[in-house]
Design a protein around this nucleic acid. Structure first.
Lengths: 180, 180
DNA sequence: TTATTTACCAACCGCACGGTCAGTATTTCA
DNA sequence: TGAAATACTGACCGTGCGGTTGGTAAATAA
């Protein structure tokens, strides 16, 4: 049910998807839908929770390791790509949320907290000498996750295994495109 | 007027912005608004046109130069960042379009054409030996522009001059984060 | 001055949406 | 068997939306 709703939200947009559309795609009536969920916003909340949960779990696991910061950053990027690929539809919805309601603002706050932890990791890696110091850590973090997050716009299983994509992302992030 | 509409579309979402909201933000009535534009969709069309126009112009200018493909790719990335920074609100709207109407589908087609030209450029650079050959050109193109397009989510003039950001993007894209 | 175009307004229309409600099948379990 | 909980239905409600209409005020130009 959540899956059906999220699929429609992603295809036609959250606002453009009516509760009737969701019910119809499940072969039930709108009233039956309201018997199971409190409203449209709850579906959104459940979906972005699943996305944020995966990302936060990845960050926590990485924080628990004792490797150098640069290696932890690489690991976080890798794990994030795997979360994105595994929970693609939920993360897609999360990344399109823009803070119109209370619930969306809360999701946005959690996203910002995640972003902040990435920035911190970049800064730490710079001070350890593992990452070049001539880039602003906040900008670098945002560009890095701009790359990762772009998966929601184009990734499909037939374009490569998640691990393959993750390897490409970390290669590009740490070594760049130039031949050497 | 277009600027006011686009600002509201980006803040609250296209669907969530009513023609009344736009009129109110301009201090006129809804009817006055309809005197100048044919409808809500025309505002969208005009906005995405301005975004796509900038990107296509950049691609054409780059195509007209005779440099190696790798240098042309770097130049296209640089120019694209400048277009994004300069027309931020219009590109933001463009990147959120998802093909619900005829006009949006047309915009999406133009975007895909641009993406294809980037992929071609990556492939050409690989065959010239200017870019590492162990990455899929389509994936690399998408990751590169994932990085560039992320600007619409975070860029503001006080976070750095467009040229500074552009330099960071091309550095990250070609040389990566690792110290050497 | 007068005719014409341009800019604007208030009131209105039809429609689709999120959500409710009163009631009815169906399942569960003592 | 029968009571209680669960799953579901169709009709309905209020609201806000995109867009229209018939008309008025102001600018423009002959």
């Amino acid at each position: 049910m959540l899956a059906a709703a999220v699929r429609l939200f992603n295809t036609h947009g959250y606002d453009a998807t009516s509760m009737f559309d969701i019910a119809e795609s499940l072969g039930i009536t709108k009233s039956a839908l309201y018997h199971h969920v409190s409203g449209k916003e709850q579906l959104l909340t459940m979906a972005v929770d699943r996305a944020l949960g995966g990302l936060e779990e990845a960050a926590a696991e990485v924080r628990a390791t004792a490797a150098p910061a640069a290696a932890r950053l690489e690991d976080l990027i890798r794990r994030s790509v795997l979360v994105l690929a595994g929970r693609l539809e939920f993360v897609t919805l999360l990344l399109r949320v823009h803070g119109n309601t209370e619930a969306e603002l809360h999701a946005l706050a959690r996203r910002r907290e995640f972003d902040r932890s990435v920035t911190d990791l970049v800064r730490e890696a710079q001070s350890e000498g593992g990452v070049r110091a001539d880039v602003d850590p906040a900008v670098a973090a945002r560009l890095l996750f701009g790359m990762v997050n772009s998966l929601v716009e184009w990734y499909r299983p037939d374009r490569g295994a998640p691990e393959t994509i993750a390897a490409m992302v970390t290669t590009l992030a740490f070594d760049g495109l130039r031949t050497r």
